[in-house]
Amino acid sequence: MDPDIEVVPITGDMIRLGQFLKFANFAESGAAAGELIQGGDVKVDGDVETRRGRQLAKGMLVEVLLPGSVLRAKVG
């Protein structure tokens, strides 16, 4: 496993993308999460995802593209 990829534990089997971005501290609020997603700056398992309500299962990789860096976390 890549040491740069944090595993963010969730309760239950699924979590919505917008919630996960807040949970992983990639977004300060739901509005900020929505802006990242709508801007095409979020990938799920390598594919750009524009649906805030996208259901994520454990093991999925979420990437947020920021100027000069990429944040990565796996749903745990």
Rank of each mutant, 00 (worst) to 15 (best):
M1A: 13
M1G: 15
D2V: 01
D2A: 11
D2S: 12
I5P: 10
I5F: 07
E6A: 14
E6I: 02
V7M: 09
V7F: 12
V7A: 15
V8Q: 05
P9E: 12
P9S: 07
I10M: 09
G12S: 08
G12W: 00
D13P: 05
D13N: 11
M14V: 12
I15A: 09
I15F: 03
G18D: 12
G18K: 00
K22Y: 09
F23G: 14
F26V: 00
F26G: 06
F26I: 00
A27L: 05
E28L: 06
E28Y: 03
S29F: 03
S29Q: 04
A31D: 12
A32K: 00
A32G: 08
A32I: 02
A32C: 03
A33C: 06
A33P: 03
G34H: 01
G34Q: 08
G34D: 05
E35V: 07
E35A: 15
E35G: 14
L36F: 05
I37C: 11
I37K: 05
I37Y: 04
I37M: 08
Q38Y: 11
Q38A: 11
Q38G: 11
G39S: 04
G39I: 01
G39V: 02
G40R: 01
G40W: 00
D41M: 11
D41F: 10
D41G: 13
D41C: 15
V42D: 07
V42I: 13
V42R: 01
V42C: 11
V42E: 05
K43G: 14
K43M: 11
V44H: 10
V44S: 15
V44E: 08
D45F: 05
G46Y: 05
D47K: 07
D47T: 06
D47C: 07
E49R: 04
R51V: 08
R51C: 15
R51W: 06
R51A: 14
R52N: 11
R52C: 04
R52W: 01
G53E: 07
G53N: 08
G53P: 00
Q55D: 12
Q55L: 13
Q55W: 02
L56D: 00
L56M: 04
L56Y: 00
A57N: 09
K58F: 08
K58R: 14
G59W: 00
G59Q: 05
M60K: 06
M60F: 03
M60R: 06
M60L: 09
L61E: 14
E63N: 04
E63G: 07
V64Q: 10
V64E: 05
L65V: 09
L65E: 13
L65N: 14
L65M: 14
L65T: 09
L65P: 08
P67D: 10
G68S: 12
G68V: 06
S69M: 13
S69G: 13
S69P: 06
L71G: 07
R72L: 10
K74P: 07
K74W: 03
V75C: 06
G76Y: 02
G76H: 07
